[in-house]
């Protein structure tokens, strides 16, 4: 058997279509790229019916690897697990439902074979409900604005990348969403390709409020990690210094009123409020300093740069 050139990882979770038709569609599209491929399905939870169908396919001689999690571990872990069992140099991740028109897949694979490209991401030309577009755009714009990330569809699960990318980028929890961002921070070259959205991807998505909160937190973490990675004091210090200033100004006003206007100070809640804000400010600055200390004392272990090659 010849060398596998492309490993396709499909994490199967809550949202999945009929795997048999999905597999045949994906397989036909991937085959058109002309590479020797394998498929890795990672079943994230108890989906016995899906597992059974995949086993039948495998018995028919399809190049399948099936990884069954004992309980749901999340998409990022599923992708990592798939990656650890992938044999090829080139890795592709596809969602367990059609997100883009399958005809676009060969072009994505070919783009990633260019020597200077480490990762290819798909960006959907969206034609779905305006509310979907709005929330997706808000997410991506925020990322672009605050994390200086120039790509426009981080949420699209269709990605092709070299093995080295996942060797160096660790993803966990909900971070699979940010794989391109994290890879980009590591200095990998990313190319984004505009593709057409699949019709089955165009239903209206309304999530539970809890999910929006989680997404917002993810966004905050991604921004913090990319902007203030090595300079916590710039982040904590700014907020802390603002709070301290506000607190001090408030106190100054109160003292002025006490001394000049002879208003009683002891029974005014405003005094407590100002002191509270001041204390908060001092605490934030102090935490920023602790962060700086961590980085300063560990700086020789943390490499800030990634090397592409060394000559001689």
């Amino acid at each position: 058997m010849s060398q596998v050139e492309l490993s396709v990882i499909i994490p199967v979770g809550e949202r999945s279509e009929n795997v048999v038709t999905l597999y045949s569609i994906y397989r036909d599209a991937v085959a058109r790229a002309g590479l020797h491929y394998e498929f890795i399905f990672v079943i994230d939870g108890h989906y016995d019916e899906i597992t059974q169908r995949l086993k039948t396919l495998k018995a028919d001689g399809e190049p399948l690897t099936i990884i069954n999690f004992s309980r749901p571990f999340g998409e990022a872990t599923a992708i990592s697990a798939g990656f650890q069992n992938a044999k090829a140099e080139l890795i592709m991740t596809l969602p367990a439902y059609e997100q883009i028109i399958p005809d676009e897949i060969p072009a994505l694979i070919q783009a990633c074979q260019a020597p200077e490209v480490d990762m290819v991401t798909a960006s959907r030309r969206r034609k779905d409900h305006w509310f979907n577009q709005l929330q997706a755009r808000m997410f991506n714009r925020t990322l672009g604005r605050f994390a200086d990330f120039p790509f426009t569809d981080t949420g699209c699960g269709v990605r092709v990348f070299r093995r080295q990318v996942m060797d160096e980028v660790e993803i966990y929890g909900d971070l699979h969403r940010f794989l391109p961002l994290l890879a980009w921070q590591q200095g990998f070259q990313i190319q984004e390709i505009k593709v057409d959205q699949a019709p089955s991807d165009m239903f209206l998505r309304l999530f539970r409020p809890g999910l929006y909160l989680r997404r917002a937190l993810d966004l905050l973490i991604a921004i913090f990690l990319s902007k203030f990675n090595k300079r916590p004091l710039r982040f904590f210090g700014l907020v802390g210094a603002t709070a301290t200033t506000v607190g001090l100004l408030g106190l100054a006003v109160l003292i002025f009123q006490r001394l000049v206007l002879a208003q009683s100070l002891a029974d005014r809640p405003a005094l407590l409020l100002c002191a509270l804000v001041l204390v908060l400010g001092v605490q934030l600055v102090a935490i920023g300093l602790v962060g700086e200390t961590i980085i300063f004392t560990h700086a020789r272990e943390i490499k800030e740069y990634k090397i592409r090659e060394i000559i001689n």
């Binding site: 590591q186 200095g187 990998f188 070259q189 490499k303 800030e304 740069y305 990634k306 090397i307 592409r308 090659e309 060394i310 000559i311 001689n312």
Partner: peptide, 25 residues
Amino acid sequence: IALQDTRLRVVRFRRNYGQTPAMAA
């Protein structure tokens, strides 16, 4: 130049990181 003179070594970054990381490297 480095291909002709082994006293020259070249370290190439993946992307632009700034002068301090370059010095550190």
